[in-house]
Design a protein around this nucleic acid. Structure first.
Lengths: 187, 187
DNA sequence: CGACGCATGTAAGTTGTTACATGATTAG
DNA sequence: CTAATCATGTAACAACTTACATGCGTCG
C-alpha cells in the first residue's frame, strides 16, 4: 500500500524537512499510528526523489555538515491528495502479542496470569499518563481555534489514542477482577 | 520475536492439527489479534519440525489426499510455556492508516472528511456486529464455567475486541459531531 | 575534550504479501 | 459435473528491523 511513502509526502507537504526531521516526527509525534526507522526513511526519500515527487536542496549546518532539506513537488502533492481522498477498506485488525498470550491463558497458572496482567496494566497506565500530558500541553486543547489547522489533526488523533489506551486498561482491569474473583472465591 | 512460531505451537498444543486447520483458526478465530497466510504457515511448520518442536503423522483423507497432522513435542511445549510466561515490554502502538489520514485532515475539504468518517463508521459498525454475534454464540457467555478452560481465553479476548471496536466507533462519532458542528454553525 | 545530539547512509536478515502451481474430496 | 472446499507447497517481492559505518556540531 506504500503507506510510508504517503506518510512522508504528507509530512513534507506540511513543512519542508530533512530525513532526520522525519525520523523525529515519526517517532515522537506520529508514534501512536505510524513510525519508521531512519534505515527505512532514507532509502524511501531517495526513491521519492527519483520519482519526482519530492526535491531537495543541500543546506549547510555549521561549516561542513550537509543536510538535505526536502520539499514536495506539484506531482507529489497531487499523488498525496489522491491517496488521502481514497476510501479504504478496513485494514485487518492489528496484531497484539499480549492478546495472543491471553488467548492461551489456560496454559498458565493463576499467579502467572495475574503477574502478566498487572505488568501490562502498569505499563499501559504509564503510557496513558504520557498521552494525557501531551494532551494537556497541546495548543488545541486550550483553545478550539480552527478545524482547518494542522493542529486539529494532531488533536483528534491524540484524543483517539487516549481513548484507545483507556479501553485497553479497562479490559485489563476487568480481566484481573474476574481472575481474582475465581482465585479466592469460596470463603 | 518469532511470534508466529509461538502462535502455531500454542494452537498445536491445544489440539493436534494440520497446516490447513491452522490457517482456518488464524483467519477465523484468532483474526482479532493474530493471523497468517498459508504461504507463511507451511514453511514455518517445516522449520518447527526440523527443530524438533513438533512432529507429524501422515493421515489419508479419502483414497489419495495426504494431510500432515502435527503434534507438539515435549521440547516444543517447554519452549511454548517459556515464551508464554515471559514478561514483555509494551509493543509499539499498532499502525493505523485511517488515523494517519486523520492526522492530515487539514488537507481535506469538510465534505471529504465527513465522507471518510462515515465510511469508516459503517464498516466499523458492521465489524462490531459480527463480533457481538460471535459473543452471543460463545459457550462461555452463556454459562461461566471454568476459568482454566480454553474457552475462557477465547472469551476474554473476544470481549477485548468488542471493547476496542466500541471505542473506535465512539472516537469516529465524536470526530463527526465536532466536524459537523463546525461545518454549519453560524445560522 | 567528552558526551550527546545532528545527520546520512548501507547490509543482512526477518516477516509478511501476492502470485504461481497442483491436485483430491465433497456437496449439490 | 462443477463449484466450493480441502490440502500443500514454492517464488518473487515488499516492508520492516537490527546492525554496521561514518562524521560534524554543540554544550558543559
Amino acid at each position: 500500500m506504500r503507506t510510508l511513502k504517503y506518510a512522508i509526502l504528507g509530512l513534507i507537504n506540511r513543512n519542508s524537512m530533512t530525513g532526520y526531521d522525519l525520523m523525529k516526527v515519526f517517532n515522537l509525534e506520529l508514534v501512536n499510528f505510524w513510525y519508521a526507522k531512519h534505515s527505512q526513511i532514507y532509502p524511501e526519500l531517495k526513491k521519492l526523489t527519483d520519482d519526482g515527487l519530492i526535491t531537495y536542496e543541500t543546506v549547510l549546518l555549521g561549516d561542513k555538515l550537509e543536510k538535505k532539506l526536502y520539499s514536495i513537488t506539484q506531482e507529489g502533492r497531487k499523488d498525496f491528495l489522491n491517496w488521502l481522498a481514497k476510501q479504504d477498506q478496513l485494514e485487518p485488525t492489528p496484531k497484539d502479542i499480549f492478546r495472543l498470550k491471553t488467548f492461551f491463558i489456560e496454559s498458565m497458572t493463576r499467579e502467572e496470569m495475574l503477574k502478566q496482567f498487572y505488568y501490562q496494566l502498569d505499563q499501559r497506565k504509564a503510557k496513558l499518563k504520557k498521552l494525557e500530558t501531551s494532551m494537556s500541553q497541546h495548543p488545541y486543547s486550550k483553545e478550539i481555534s480552527d478545524i482547518a489547522s494542522p493542529e486539529y489533526g494532531d488533536y483528534i488523533v491524540l484524543k483517539g489514542a487516549i481513548m484507545r489506551e483507556h479501553t485497553y486498561i479497562d479490559w485489563l482491569k476487568g480481566c484481573i477482577k474476574e481472575i481474582e474473583s475465581f482465585t479466592k472465591p469460596h470463603f
